[in-house]
């Protein structure tokens, strides 16, 4: 039976969840400019007692851009990735990027709902002896934390609570929109990241920018667009009292971390440190903060972490 897309695996139902062993699709950015995301994910997995088996021969998901050149190529590339996961016996594929999540799920939806798409993909995969059976489900690490581990369980594992650190969630578009592809939680009013922040001992900050776009995908198309979108959103977070931001998307991380300095003229200084999702979870679960690569951020969180007795300033 093909996996259903409307409701991602219920806690404990997937074979992977029972074995605590998942297919892992890190995505390009976690392998290139945000290696700290890859490393902190592996450290977190170790702490959680789950195994993430990297799909090393996988390709880029298409990153929303490939559809601009050809409507089929991203879908078939993703079918190839799913065939690799199936061949490894890992139907439960975990991502750590909102854009990967959205585009891999969209490709899977098209493959599962349209026989001609599946036929086209398998005709090409057949040229090199691969076949996608339609059993893969793609989920974000955030969903794994909540569905397979559970927030209650996670909060019991907290050894370094966030001590009321005021954290603003920044979802990134493709983990929530379009709802017809993701559908794991309300796109207009998601609350998984806020629930997670509270479970880790932090205070979740509410602001309108949390479900808006960071501008990453148009940073090179015209001057000033991405910095303006970053500044607008970070201004809202700062004015709502945020001391830091958490995001499940490395593209958002790059834009938010990189462009706050370029948005000062219009939006004022915000200087909010931007945590990758696994960094903040791992920190609360007691992973050595000096191993989480937080000193690799442009706006380093050292001072904020020191103020809340979470880590000495020099390690981040």
């Amino acid at each position: 039976m093909p996996a259903t897309l409307e409701k991602p695996v219920i806690k404990g139902k997937s074979k992977s969840a029972q074995m605590r062993k998942y297919g892992f699709f890190p995505g390009c950015v976690a392998k290139e400019s945000c290696k700290e995301l890859f490393n902190s994910t592996m450290l977190l997995a170790d702490r959680l007692g789950i195994e993430l088996v990297e799909l090393t021969a996988a390709s880029c998901c298409g990153a929303s851009v490939l559809n601009d050149t050809n409507r089929d190529v991203a879908r078939v590339l993703n079918a190839r990735t799913y065939a690799q996961a199936e061949a490894l016996g890992l139907d439960d594929v975990i991502t750590i990027c909102s854009t990967c999540t959205g585009h891999m799920r969209a490709a899977n939806k098209e493959l599962l709902e349209n026989e001609s798409h599946m036929g086209q993909a398998n005709a090409i995969l057949g040229k090199f002896g691969a076949k996608y059976e339609g059993n893969v489900i793609v989920r974000h690490l955030l969903w794994l934390l909540i569905d397979d581990i559970g927030l209650d369980e996670l909060s019991k594992m907290v050894v370094n609570p966030l001590n009321g650190l005021k954290v603003a969630a920044f979802y990134g578009c493709h983990i929530i929109r379009p709802e017809s592809v993701n559908g794991w939680e309300s796109a207009r009013n998601p609350h998984s990241l806020e629930d997670l922040i509270v479970a880790l001992g932090g205070e979740a900050i509410d602001y309108a920018g949390r479900t808006r776009c960071c501008g990453f995908h148009v940073q090179l198309e015209k001057d000033g667009i991405a910095p303006n979108m970053v500044g607008q959103n970070m201004r809202m977070a700062k004015d709502a009292g945020a001391e830091a931001v958490i995001t499940p998307c490395p593209l958002c991380h790059l834009a938010l971390d990189g462009y706050q300095a370029d948005s000062v003229a219009r939006w004022g200084r915000t200087d909010l440190p931007i945590f990758h999702l696994p960094q903040l979870v791992a920190l609360a679960l007691g992973v050595d903060p000096s191993t989480l690569g937080m000193n690799k951020h442009i706006i380093t969180p050292g001072l904020v972490l020191q103020q809340h007795d979470l880590a000495p300033a020099h390690v981040a």
Binding site: S59, C60, V65, T69, N70, L220
Partner: peptide, 25 residues
């Protein structure tokens, strides 16, 4: 910039399997 961006992303994925950030920029 827009069409060049889309086409260079396609080029780097075809060449390496990955979206090569440096070359895309």
């Amino acid at each position: 910039a827009g069409p060049r961006h889309a086409l260079v992303v396609a080029k780097t994925i075809k060449a390496t399997g990955m979206l090569h950030e440096t070359e895309v920029i």
